[in-house]
């Protein structure tokens, strides 16, 4: 059972600290495990600090997402390979990510949140951010994909010709 008034203090990689309700942190496998490992009294308010390898700006975004999703069911429902789809991102989440579009480093923010969701083991946030990035790439040409991902082609012409043959069914 999670008591709504319980608090946990998180310390970030750049030295900030923030205290949040355990209603939020229960969605993070990493934080819940850290609390369990501390073996502190569940009624302690606030609990001892948990160090997270995430910077302050990214953690703020994670907390904003957790606040919206605090009542989501746990455990997070895992999809099978057959059920996988990227077009089911909730409207609030879409608007949440679109806000970053005004930032110069929008893609960097997305990478930072994906990495944070992975480190903190927040499955719902990880799922949503991975789908968001996939949706940016879906349906694009190879050249557009390289531009979005800022990657250089490192194939030889012969290797590319071989892949083109294998890919003819989806590219021609």
């Amino acid at each position: 059972r999670i008591y709504p008034l319980m608090r946990v203090t998180l310390t970030t990689s750049d030295g900030a600290s923030v205290t949040v309700s355990r209603q939020l942190t229960k969605h993070s496998g990493f934080i819940e495990k850290a609390i369990t490992d501390m073996a502190v009294d569940d009624n302690a308010v606030p609990l001892s600090a948990v160090a997270v390898d995430v910077d302050d700006a990214t953690l703020k975004l994670v907390i904003e997402w957790l606040t919206e999703h605090r009542d989501d069911a746990l455990p997070y429902p895992e999809k099978t390979d057959e059920e996988r789809r990227a077009d089911d991102i909730p409207a609030w989440d879409q608007a949440f990510v679109q806000k970053w579009d005004t930032k110069e480093d929008q893609q960097q923010t997305l990478y930072a949140v994906i990495t944070a969701a992975d480190k903190l083991d927040i499955k719902g946030l990880l799922d949503m951010t991975c789908k968001t990035l996939a949706n940016k790439i879906n349906g694009k040409t190879v050249e557009e994909m390289r531009e979005i991902l800022q990657l250089e082609c490192d194939f030889t012409e012969e290797e590319l010709a071989e892949i083109r043959k294998e890919n003819a069914w989806c590219e021609n």
């Binding site: 996988r84 789809r85 990227a86 991975c130 789908k131 996939a134 949706n135 790439i137 879906n138 349906g139 694009k140 040409t141 190879v142 994909m145 390289r146 991902l149 990657l151 082609c153 194939f155 590319l160 892949i163 083109r164 294998e166 890919n167 989806c170 590219e171």
Partner: peptide, 13 residues
Amino acid sequence: NLDLPSQFKMRRV
């Protein structure tokens, strides 16, 4: 999470 043609096109990236 990519559709199948995009997933295969991405091989050329």
